[in-house]
């Protein structure tokens, strides 16, 4: 008898496709909390995956990144700004000394024009593989030691 638990999956229709597919949950998932008290979860309680583009930023209050074992990371959204979320993926290719190494870092935050109507304000939080959080004004400033 197989006693292993099935890995839970969430349904979605991939962009560009017409047929439903399934996906496993991400280690770090987002939750968009709206000003009316409702929320949109990337992996919702009804078993569906949601794209980032489904977030209604016009009524966004907070954007949270949640993890099953670690404290959540919360960004208070600034109305009128643009919400940002992506993964910075770094791949060290295989060599004679080491196998391929792949690192995916969730990055999220917001950007927009400041109150002086001139300055561009950009805040990016990067959640590193060890759970530490780096706050940046430009995700291009993230550097990785991929020696191996």
């Amino acid at each position: 008898m197989d006693n292993t638990m099935p890995i839970p999956t969430w349904k979605f229709i991939p962009k560009g496709d017409t047929e439903e597919s399934t996906t496993e949950k991400e280690e770090w998932c987002w939750i968009a909390d709206y000003t009316d008290g409702t929320s949109l979860k990337q992996f919702d309680d009804e078993g569906y995956f949601h794209y980032f583009s489904e977030i209604d930023q016009s009524r966004l209050y907070t954007f949270r990144m949640v993890h099953e074992q670690l404290p959540q990371v919360v960004v208070a959204f600034r109305p009128g700004f643009k919400l940002i979320h992506f993964h910075k993926v770094t791949v060290r290719t295989a060599s004679e000394k080491a196998p391929e190494l792949r690192v995916r870092v969730p990055c999220f935050g917001y950007e927009g024009i400041g109150e002086n109507k001139t300055d561009i304000i950009k805040v990016i939080l990067a959640i590193m593989p060890d759970g530490s959080i780096i706050v940046l004004d430009d995700a291009n400033k993230l550097t990785f030691n991929m020696e191996g």
Partner: peptide, 10 residues
């Protein structure tokens, strides 16, 4: 060893 990087959006 070549390393490559990109930003992935969903």
């Amino acid at each position: 060893v070549i390393t490559y990087q990109y930003d992935e959006t969903s």
